[in-house]
Design a protein around this nucleic acid. Structure first.
Lengths: 251, 251
DNA sequence: CGATTTCTATATCGCTCGCTACAAAAAGAC
DNA sequence: GTCTTTTTGTAGCGAGCGATATAGAAATCG
């Protein structure tokens, strides 16, 4: 099945679907779901309404596809950082640092589409709001899972309140998104992120290790956001954190 | 000067203007500016459209009045806390604590109208968005001013980055608002607030400092020795409640 | 009592919304 | 070429938007 040899029969599409989707992402990212009208979309995507509906379904389907692509291209840094770093602290620290950069990159809408595109939602689009809220809660659950694992492994004190710490980190990220929309620059957001990490509980085994002179060497390279496509940025990453080396940092 | 003794000449208004405004606040608070339609408003306010326009002007004027009244009734706790507490730390700490309560009070829309009602804004209402953004920035400037004063007085280390610390506090508050909208309960928000304060710089003169009497400590000493036993719904009127004296933060 | 003033309800206005018929246009299949 | 399939632009659907014209209802004034 799925032989792509057969040529399209009818008149070929005169626009690039991915480019058009990219423009739709920008519109939704900047204005949110409700406030982005079909005529906004047809203008920025450079196509007519019937072409839009033929290629993407309806407004809701286009938005869903835009959100999925947004997660693949822009918004996946948080679950990625949490999944890839060996400790929750470093994961959150990296996520906050990357958020500071991602939320303020020149030439992009500011802040996080998922955080901001659902608000101001009329009852008619309650489904959209609920869907995006679920994504935000899922991100917080991801963080909480990492924290719980660190408590179990002794990386964090047994007295740590995992849920509270996770919600704190989520709040800081959401607050940073809000402030980015309000014009805060990258430096300001980075300062916020750095301050926020001062609230993180002391590492249980802080004094004993620290011998491995890793410090900067690898961190610099692993710092670059949006590098690997990360197959699916979707949710339901049940055991995504099994990559924890648990042996300090660097072999 | 203007004597209100003169009786109204025509047919008297058949609804209570303040009650109607209160309902308008709820609608805008829950749904935001854009998503709240005139028919939403006439339904919840219990009046017809012409009555609404006669009593409040247009939708924008009604919203402005609703925001002003919101600040008077609900949203003024942050500037109040910052202004009334003797130190920025205690001001922010109190503001965060009050935000946790205010954002989740039963029978009220969740979160902060100012933070959430402007997002998802179409170009047509750019003015509204700009106006609310300016209010958020003003709140952050208030915090920053208090921090700068504390640095000058030696209450905070001279190395403290006032702007960064202020933006951090603002981000935490905005993140808490977002999470309140997403269903976080008061306990969760309080845990976030408590964690956030662990990032606050150590007080310079942590041990003594009580009798030295800085200038502004004159009348401001109305910093209430615990008299109110945790007033339940006592939301307004800046009575500074405090669970423990300023000796230490940790049990 | 009219006369005047002000509020209320009905019934829209012009506009934009998301969405879609419709037929011409452009390709492969025969 | 002719037929079939798909995309294209035009043009417009019903519904809801913010805002109003109009006329009747309810109060005070002389």
């Amino acid at each position: 099945m799925a032989s792509k040899e057969t040529k399209q029969r009818g008149r070929p599409r005169s626009f690039d679907r991915e480019t058009a989707l990219e423009q739709a992402i920008r519109s939704f990212w900047e204005q949110g779901y409700e406030a982005t009208s079909i005529s906004d979309l047809t203008r920025t995507m450079g196509i007519s309404a019937p072409s839009l509906y033929a290629a993407f379904g309806d407004k809701r389907a286009l938005f869903d596809e835009a959100v999925a692509e947004y997660g693949r291209l822009y918004g996946g840094f948080l679950p990625r950082a949490v999944a890839e770093e060996p400790t929750a602290r470093r994961g959150v620290e990296r996520a906050l640092r990357e958020a500071a950069a991602e939320y303020t990159l020149p030439g992009r809408p500011r802040g996080c589409l998922v955080i901001s595109a659902a608000q101001n939602t009329a009852p008619a689009s309650a489904e959209v709001a609920a869907s995006l809220r679920e994504m935000r809660l899922s991100n917080i659950r991801d963080i909480q899972r990492a924290i719980t694992a660190d408590i179990a492994s002794g990386e964090l004190p047994a007295t740590t309140d995992a849920a509270a710490l996770a919600h704190y980190a989520g709040a800081v990220i959401q607050g940073m998104s809000q402030q980015a929309r309000d014009g805060a620059d990258r430096t300001t957001l980075e300062a916020i992120a750095e301050l926020a990490m001062k609230a993180w509980p002391e590492t249980e085994t802080q004094t004993e290790r620290e011998g491995a002179g890793e410090t900067e060497g690898t961190g610099k390279a692993a710092d670059d956001p949006e590098k690997e496509p990360e197959a699916k940025a979707g949710k339901t990453r049940g055991e995504a954190r099994r990559t924890r080396p648990r042996t300090a940092d660097r072999p």
